[in-house]
Amino acid sequence: MAVDKNMKVLIVDDYQTMLRILRNLLKQLEFNNVTDASDGTKALEALRKEPYGLIISDWNMVPMTGIQLLREVRADPKLKHIPFIMITAESKSENVITAKEAGVSNYIVKPFNAETLKAKLVSVLGEF
Protein backbone atom coordinates (compact mmCIF):
# COMPACT_ATOMS: atom_id res chain seq x y z
CA MET A 1 0.00 0.00 0.00
CA ALA A 2 1.34 3.41 -0.97
CA VAL A 3 2.32 5.76 1.80
CA ASP A 4 -0.06 8.67 2.19
CA LYS A 5 2.30 11.62 2.23
CA ASN A 6 -0.54 13.90 3.18
CA MET A 7 -0.83 12.20 6.56
CA LYS A 8 -0.44 14.47 9.55
CA VAL A 9 3.02 14.19 11.06
CA LEU A 10 3.71 15.47 14.57
CA ILE A 11 7.29 16.49 15.30
CA VAL A 12 8.21 17.10 18.94
CA ASP A 13 11.38 18.85 20.12
CA ASP A 14 12.23 21.64 22.57
CA TYR A 15 14.81 23.09 20.17
CA GLN A 16 13.12 25.30 17.61
CA THR A 17 16.02 24.85 15.22
CA MET A 18 15.61 21.06 15.31
CA LEU A 19 11.90 21.40 14.60
CA ARG A 20 12.74 23.58 11.65
CA ILE A 21 15.38 21.14 10.37
CA LEU A 22 12.94 18.23 10.63
CA ARG A 23 10.17 20.19 8.95
CA ASN A 24 12.47 21.08 6.04
CA LEU A 25 13.83 17.55 5.66
CA LEU A 26 10.29 16.13 5.73
CA LYS A 27 9.24 18.73 3.18
CA GLN A 28 12.02 17.55 0.88
CA LEU A 29 10.60 14.04 1.26
CA GLU A 30 7.20 15.52 0.33
CA PHE A 31 5.63 15.23 3.77
CA ASN A 32 4.05 18.65 3.91
CA ASN A 33 1.37 18.18 6.55
CA VAL A 34 3.62 18.68 9.56
CA THR A 35 2.70 20.08 12.98
CA ASP A 36 5.12 20.67 15.84
CA ALA A 37 5.08 20.64 19.62
CA SER A 38 7.78 21.68 22.09
CA ASP A 39 7.32 18.87 24.63
CA GLY A 40 5.32 15.75 25.40
CA THR A 41 2.44 17.54 27.11
CA LYS A 42 1.79 19.78 24.13
CA ALA A 43 2.20 16.83 21.80
CA LEU A 44 -0.45 14.85 23.68
CA GLU A 45 -2.85 17.80 23.47
CA ALA A 46 -2.34 17.92 19.70
CA LEU A 47 -2.68 14.14 19.34
CA ARG A 48 -6.00 14.15 21.20
CA LYS A 49 -7.40 16.92 19.00
CA GLU A 50 -6.94 15.36 15.58
CA PRO A 51 -5.70 12.15 13.98
CA TYR A 52 -1.98 11.80 13.19
CA GLY A 53 -0.22 9.24 11.04
CA LEU A 54 3.26 9.55 12.54
CA ILE A 55 5.05 10.95 15.59
CA ILE A 56 8.72 11.92 15.50
CA SER A 57 9.92 12.94 18.94
CA ASP A 58 13.01 14.02 20.85
CA TRP A 59 13.65 12.39 24.24
CA ASN A 60 15.09 15.09 26.51
CA MET A 61 12.34 17.68 27.01
CA VAL A 62 10.48 19.26 29.92
CA PRO A 63 7.96 18.93 31.45
CA MET A 64 7.11 15.73 29.59
CA THR A 65 9.98 13.77 28.06
CA GLY A 66 9.82 11.78 24.84
CA ILE A 67 9.78 8.45 26.68
CA GLN A 68 6.85 9.58 28.82
CA LEU A 69 5.06 10.71 25.68
CA LEU A 70 5.70 7.32 24.09
CA ARG A 71 4.25 5.52 27.13
CA GLU A 72 1.20 7.80 27.14
CA VAL A 73 0.65 7.17 23.44
CA ARG A 74 0.99 3.41 23.77
CA ALA A 75 -1.37 3.38 26.76
CA ASP A 76 -4.10 5.28 24.93
CA PRO A 77 -6.34 3.00 22.84
CA LYS A 78 -7.00 5.80 20.38
CA LEU A 79 -3.33 6.65 19.84
CA LYS A 80 -1.44 3.43 20.41
CA HIS A 81 -1.36 2.44 16.74
CA ILE A 82 0.53 5.58 15.65
CA PRO A 83 4.11 4.86 14.56
CA PHE A 84 6.57 6.59 16.89
CA ILE A 85 10.14 7.44 15.91
CA MET A 86 12.49 8.70 18.62
CA ILE A 87 15.17 11.12 17.40
CA THR A 88 17.58 11.86 20.20
CA ALA A 89 21.14 12.41 21.32
CA GLU A 90 20.52 9.88 24.12
CA SER A 91 22.43 6.96 22.70
CA LYS A 92 23.07 4.70 25.70
CA SER A 93 21.99 1.07 25.49
CA GLU A 94 19.60 1.49 28.40
CA ASN A 95 17.86 4.31 26.55
CA VAL A 96 17.40 2.22 23.43
CA ILE A 97 16.21 -0.78 25.45
CA THR A 98 13.82 1.35 27.50
CA ALA A 99 12.38 2.87 24.33
CA LYS A 100 12.05 -0.57 22.74
CA GLU A 101 10.23 -1.88 25.80
CA ALA A 102 7.92 1.14 25.69
CA GLY A 103 7.02 0.31 22.09
CA VAL A 104 9.10 2.66 19.95
CA SER A 105 8.82 2.00 16.22
CA ASN A 106 12.33 3.18 15.41
CA TYR A 107 15.17 5.15 16.95
CA ILE A 108 17.45 7.71 15.33
CA VAL A 109 20.54 9.00 17.10
CA LYS A 110 21.49 12.66 16.69
CA PRO A 111 23.30 14.01 14.79
CA PHE A 112 21.53 12.31 11.90
CA ASN A 113 21.36 12.85 8.17
CA ALA A 114 18.51 12.96 5.68
CA GLU A 115 19.36 9.50 4.40
CA THR A 116 18.94 7.95 7.85
CA LEU A 117 15.67 9.80 8.36
CA LYS A 118 14.36 8.52 5.04
CA ALA A 119 15.48 4.95 5.80
CA LYS A 120 13.69 4.98 9.14
CA LEU A 121 10.53 6.45 7.61
CA VAL A 122 10.55 3.69 5.01
CA SER A 123 11.09 1.07 7.70
CA VAL A 124 8.13 2.38 9.70
CA LEU A 125 5.72 3.42 6.92
CA GLY A 126 6.81 1.31 3.97
CA GLU A 127 8.41 2.29 0.65
CA PHE A 128 7.55 5.71 -0.77
Binding site: M18, I21, Q28, A89, K110, F112
Partner: peptide, 10 residues
Protein backbone atom coordinates in the same frame (compact mmCIF):
# COMPACT_ATOMS: atom_id res chain seq x y z
CA UNK B 1 22.92 22.54 5.04
CA UNK B 2 19.87 21.39 7.03
CA UNK B 3 21.76 18.35 8.30
CA UNK B 4 24.71 20.51 9.33
CA UNK B 5 22.38 22.89 11.20
CA UNK B 6 21.72 20.04 13.60
CA UNK B 7 24.97 21.08 15.31
CA UNK B 8 23.04 23.73 17.21
CA UNK B 9 20.86 21.16 18.92
CA UNK B 10 23.83 19.01 19.90
Amino acid sequence: VYEACGFQDI
